[in-house]
Design a protein around this nucleic acid. Structure first.
Lengths: 332, 332
DNA sequence: TCCGAAACTGAAAACGCTTTCATGAAATCG
DNA sequence: CGATTTCATGAAAGCGTTTTCAGTTTCGGA
């Protein structure tokens, strides 16, 4: 374990001053050929790496982006994370990642922790905070949030049009002749949960069908929640021929609940999800779902933040959803 | 956007010296009641947060743990990540996360990037590097790797006994009367892939069965790989009544491949996985598998590293696997 | 041959904190 | 009551960089 070697050691070894070494490193001013070589040799010899902390202290920028996710183990957020990772690849930025565990309080505390660590910007996946709170945080550091739309100088929100997407999912079921359509909703209080519920209702109303409270079960975006919702739905004894689940994970849970009761998909019941996780492809049968470009969403979030940090003010493009027809829906 | 307020501003406001403010913050020496209050008031008034960079520069410790995962979107690594997160919760440490994308080269580069950022320690999930390389890195910073076993002062490896686990998985199939058992292997070159393959073979040999190359298909721990492996297995025209997949994700892919061909599980074919991901529970039918305590593995990795950083040298306890019987295996 | 511009360089200050070091005041002790 | 600890504090040094500032050379042009 060599002690820390500094720019001063290099300078001594190369027979120049520390300033010159620094200039060599940053490349901001020209350094004579002969000294360049001496410095390069010294760096090589001493195996010197500049201390990023000192650099950051001086420059004020840590080249670090803070990420607040809600669940580190979630395949959905994982995909978003991967998108951000790709966006920042090769830029010298790194990711400091924390989880809010779907708790507004924890999300806020952890975001502030990121700020205390002087991250250059923050991305929040599906924030549980209000627009106001996000705006308030954005006074300290530029922010990007996913799962809702928003467009302010220092705080932008990126999301598909959840309401419209849910509308089209429900409408697709209606087009297939379903009239009694149940909904497994998302985590209560989240804007996207609410938007999807509204889209579902609007589609029904547009088709002249009155939404039935017995056909709406509370979920929480999790597999277990989806399974519980099936119980709730069946116990309420409202008959239905199709289910629109607020996300694929709920759909997966629901699928098991149905399997347990011997209800076949799609022969007895049609099922449609939301997100298009990788696993939607591997469900039995493969799940028809609304594709949310999750990876691209993360990538877009990363790029948008990078732009903000670079002072570029390009207009944000919002991601688009898409219906992916597989095999879990059948004509009624 | 207030300019940076420093300990000196606080000192001025409170009518004390910067040293005293620092002492108040660190609590290392006693400060008189009266000044404590004055400082507290000043901090409140100015909304002061100490600059972590300056602290780190001084102390040499960043209170940051670097994590190298192989795939940010993986449910397996996600669960491990969650474990680490829990282990460090409340300790003041934060996580700098990078991905090696299963590339030895990239893993090494990114690990060095973490070192350059002066992380206090590194955890690698399922490292693609050799023991030697890990040992070499550990000279610069304490390391914990998962997915293999290892016990050195500054580098410890944490894993279930993969060979024995695979042995028992295969043996379970044998006990159920299966004689022709196929194997979908993991990513080539990984130590755990190799260990699981060896355990599979040993179980067969112990039962007096000669391993058959036609019954071993190459996978890569992914869903797509599992599906491809099914094609490979069926095209090789070796008959078999059960499959041992190197992980649950492969099993999920295999399950879809079988579904496509109208092969029922477990009626026509038994299937056993490895890991016990959440989704194993939600497969149709729920998957019998070897449970690897993934979350605990991450947690253990976090705790072990924390111990190393604190200079405690407790003997490492290795995690244990367990057979979880669900519904994907039937007597032959 | 002289002059201003350009190229190159070192000393020193600054980033914001912690930690000796030194010192005066207060508390303890025989 | 005088001598010794202990307590509380400020000044200053230091963590490892980058960035003025202030030259010194070097060079092209007149």
């Amino acid at each position: 374990m060599s002690q820390n070697i500094t720019v001063l050691d290099v300078a001594r070894e190369a027979g120049v001053s520390a300033s010159t070494v620094s200039r060599y490193l940053t490349g901001v001013t020209s350094v004579s050929k002969i000294k360049q070589e001496a410095i390069a040799r010294a760096i090589e010899l001493l195996d010197f790496t500049p201390n990023v902390l000192a650099q950051s202290l001086k420059s004020g920028s840590t080249k670090t982006i803070g990420i607040v996710t809600q669940a580190l183990e979630s395949p959905f957020f994982g995909e978003e994370l991967k998108g951000v990772e790709q966006a920042i690849a090769g830029t010298g930025y790194a990711l400091l990642i924390v989880s809010g565990h779907w708790q507004a309080r924890e999300e806020k505390d952890h975001a502030e922790l990121l700020i205390a660590r002087r991250v250059d910007g923050i991305i929040i996946f599906t924030s549980t905070a209000s627009d106001k709170q996000i705006q308030s945080l954005s006074r300290q550091v530029p922010m990007v949030v996913t799962g809702r739309r928003m467009d302010m100088p220092r705080a932008v929100g990126l999301a598909v049009d959840n309401e419209q997407a849910a509308f089209e999912a429900t409408q697709y079921l209606l087009e297939q002749g379903h009239r009694r359509i149940a909904h497994i909703s998302g985590r209560v209080g989240q804007p996207d949960t609410e938007a999807r519920l509204q889209g579902y209702k609007r589609a029904l109303k547009t088709a002249g069908i009155k939404p039935d409270a017995k056909l709406i079960a509370g979920g929480d975006f999790s597999e277990a929640g989806g399974m519980l919702a099936i119980n709730q739905l069946l116990e309420a004894r409202g008959s239905f021929t199709a289910i629109f689940a607020a996300n694929d994970q709920s759909a997966l849970g629901a699928r098991l609940g149905l399997y347990r009761r011997g209800i076949r998909v799609p022969e007895d019941l049609s099922l449609i999800g939301f997100d298009d996780l990788l696993l939607a492809n591997y469900m039995l049968p493969p799940l028809t779902t609304i594709r949310q470009p999750t990876f691209e969403l993360g990538k877009l979030a990363g790029q948008t933040l990078l732009n903000m940090l670079a002072g570029k003010t390009e207009t944000v493009v919002q991601p688009q959803f898409e219906l992916v027809v597989r095999e879990s829906v059948r004509r009624a």
